[in-house]
C-alpha cells in the first residue's frame, strides 16, 4: 500500500522545535516534514515525548522554540491560525475522550454544526455516513458508555472525520483496548489510509506500521533518533536504541 499517491507538497513542517515542562526538556530540536497524503508512524519508549510532539501539531501543547507550519498556517499566538489548524487536523486519543452526555450521533454532529455551520439535517446525514465508514451506524442513538472500547474508539474516529480534516493524528489509539478489539480499530485506520488521508500515528502496532507507513520515526528522550522508510527501519535500523526497542517490541 505505501506507494499510493503522496504528493511532493509539504503539509506539515516542523523545524527545530523544542519544548520544556518546567526544567525538563520534553522535545529537543525536532525536525519533521510530512507531505500531503503521507502516513507517518511514530514509536519509541514511554515518556520519550511522542504524545507531546503530536499534541503540538494541533496546539494542545505549546512549543517554546522552533516553528510548526500546518497547511500554510504557522502555529503562533494568533488564535485564528490555531483555530484554522484545529479545523483541519483531527485527533484520536488513547482514552477516546468522547462526550459522555451526548449520544454517538450528537458527538459526531457537534463540531460540524457549531464550528462548520452545517444545519442539523446536513450534520446528521454526514455523521451517519462516517459512522457507516467506521462500521457502527446501528449504535448512533446510544450513549458512548453503552459501547465497548473498540466501538468507542471508532466513534472517536468518526467524530474527527466529520470535521472533514486534511490530517489525522492518532495518539496510541489501541493502547487502552482489550486485545480482541484492537483489530477492529486498526482495520478502520487502514481503510482511512487507503483514502489517501495524511496521518501521523503514535503506535506500537508494528504490523499496522508495516502495512501503512511511508515514514517511520523513532523517538527517545525527546529527540527523533531515527527517521526512515519502513523497509529500512525494520530490516536495517541504524541506531542502537532503535534496534533494542524493535527487538523488545517484536519479540512480544
Amino acid at each position: 500500500m505505501p506507494d499510493n499517491a503522496i504528493s511532493t507538497e509539504t503539509i506539515i513542517q516542523i523545524e527545530r522545535v523544542s519544548k520544556w515542562f518546567g526544567d525538563f526538556q520534553v522535545l529537543q530540536d525536532i525536525d519533521l516534514t510530512v507531505r500531503h497524503g503521507e502516513r507517518v508512524v511514530v514509536c519509541g519508549p514511554s515518556g520519550s515525548g511522542k504524545s507531546t510532539l503530536i499534541r503540538c501539531i494541533n496546539r494542545l501543547e505549546e512549543h517554546q522554540s522552533g516553528r510548526i507550519v500546518v497547511d500554510g498556517n504557522e502555529l503562533d499566538y494568533n488564535t485564528k491560525h490555531i483555530h484554522k489548524v484545529r479545523c483541519e487536523v483531527g485527533m484520536v486519543f488513547q482514552q477516546f475522550n468522547l462526550f459522555p452526555h451526548l449520544t454517538v450521533l450528537e458527538n459526531c454532529t457537534l463540531g460540524p454544526m457549531r464550528v462548520r455551520g452545517l444545519t442539523k439535517k446536513e450534520a446528521k446525514s454526514q455523521a451517519m455516513e462516517y459512522l457507516e465508514r467506521v462500521r457502527i451506524p446501528e449504535q448512533a442513538h446510544k450513549h458512548p458508555s453503552a459501547l465497548s472500547g473498540g466501538q468507542q474508539q471508532r466513534v472517536a474516529i468518526a467524530r474527527s472525520l466529520c470535521m472533514e480534516p486534511r490530517i489525522m493524528l492518532f495518539d496510541e489509539p489501541t493502547s487502552a483496548l482489550d486485545p480482541e478489539m484492537i483489530k477492529e480499530v486498526l482495520d478502520v485506520m487502514i481503510d482511512l489510509a487507503e483514502t489517501g488521508m495524511t496521518m501521523i500515528c503514535v503506535t506500537h502496532e508494528m504490523g499496522f506500521a508495516r502495512t501503512v507507513a511511508h515514514q517511520m520515526v523513532f523517538m527517545d528522550e525527546g529527540r527523533i533518533v531515527e527517521n526512515a522508510a519502513p523497509e529500512q527501519f525494520f530490516s536495517n535500523p541504524k541506531n542502537e536504541r532503535t534496534k533494542l526497542f524493535l527487538s523488545q517490541i517484536l519479540s512480544h
Binding site: L60, R86, G90, N97
Partner: peptide
Amino acid sequence: GQVEGGMSIGLSRIQLMRYV
C-alpha cells in the same frame, strides 16, 4: 480529556463551556 476532545474538533473556549 473532555476539553481536549472539544478543542481537537475546533470548538472555541465559549463553545467548550457551553456544549461540553
